[in-house]
Design a protein around this nucleic acid. Structure first.
Lengths: 208, 208
DNA sequence: ATAGATGTTGACATGATGTCATATTCTTTG
DNA sequence: CAAAGAATATGACATCATGTCAACATCTAT
């Protein structure tokens, strides 16, 4: 992808950028109103006031447009994945992890609308699925690193396959995320984070 | 849905059933070859040697056909959910649960092809999503029941929200199931079951 | 044997996608 | 500064899938 927001000295380029932004803005509205599948290019270009073919000049299709729209939200998730982690005890670890799980789920709750579109897209578009997979792997790698840190400090139980445990822990978080996005979960985010973290840390860390 | 396999005294009815089965058989082949999205009604009816409209006489559309095809597999999952559970100790509980997780993942591995189609369908068709959701809830209810059993026998840790823990535990299993289905998981099913169960039981049950 | 019910059919209307030749707008060059 | 040329924009078009429906075929029951 090219850098954007530069090269505005060129009138053509400038107009091109504006068109692109108009399409993105309208696309977001259409996605939120219609959902991923029912949203059509026609609706978007109509709302943006540009020609049909124009959409295909700027993007490869519906999938591509969504991916670009997702980038902001994904960046926020990446931030959460970066939470520092250097606990001295099981209890401290629990606090940090619980807090991270909370932030993760809270973000999903906040960005529910767009995440809802993403969920639909993941099922249909390989590109969208890949984008989300990147985010997932980022988290899992980070979790794994954190587990190793705990292990080096002698906090973890023996005989565990950390790779598999790390994935498993993320999976619990991810599934609750989707339940929240779908509005299927009535329990408050705080409680969810507390409950799942409690089992996870009690399962991973050595007893007192 | 009507009962099938009866009423064969009626020639029209019999032919109708045969047509229906022909469509189902061809549909399965097409689904497995093309995946859910690329599979089309035209391909199916061509393979089945029936008219286009006929498919819509017997089914409501692609989604509906898949749902019918899924019923066999779903029944197998239901069986696993029925595993008896009355452990006397933490260790015994671990054994039973690990075994159940193993069966669950093993079934997914065995039925990979059709589960792969289901996964795609879940993202597109609300009907398919619901069908799977039913299975999920069945498992979660069963897990919850098992947790309560353990609780009544004084095996569980204090202060846990069992509802949330039960869902979380299923979620780990489910996500590993999808990874296996997608062929993204190279670790053997045995190891996965062992690893996730270990953390779960150590987190849920009281220490020795 | 014939009326009527049950089942089958493919042509059609609809609507989405992606492409492309053409038109438009701006920049650069002689 | 005019003309050549590059970058954008456009919408008509070809393609393909869906779901419907009026007509047709087949079987049952009177």
């Amino acid at each position: 992808m090219d850098k954007k927001g530069v090269e505005t000295s060129d009138k053509r380029h400038l107009r091109s950028m504006i068109t692109r932004e108009k399409i993105l803005k309208s696309a977001k509205e259409v996605f939120l109103e219609e959902g991923f599948q029912k949203a059509t290019i026609s609706q978007m270009i109509k709302k943006a006031g540009v020609g049909y073919g124009t959409a295909y000049v700027h993007f490869e299709g519906k999938d591509d447009i969504l991916i670009v729209l997702m980038e902001d939200v994904m960046a926020k998730f990446y931030e959460i994945a970066e939470t520092p982690f250097s606990p001295r005890s099981k209890e401290e670890a629990n606090d940090i992890i619980e807090n991270q799980a909370y932030s993760f789920l809270k973000l999903a709750e906040k960005e529910r609308d767009i995440m809802c579109v993403l969920e639909q897209a993941i099922g249909v578009s390989p590109e969208a699925a890949n984008k989300w997979k990147e985010t997932r792997e980022k988290f899992i790698q980070r979790i794994l690193k954190d587990i190793h840190y705990s292990h080096e400090n002698g906090l973890t139980r023996a005989g565990l396959n950390f790779e598999l445990v790390a994935r498993g822990w993320f999976f619990v978080n991810e599934m609750y995320l989707w339940e929240i996005v779908r509005g299927e979960q009535r329990a408050p985010v705080e409680e969810i984070a507390e409950a799942i973290t409690s089992v996870y840390t009690a399962g991973l860390y050595k007893g007192v």
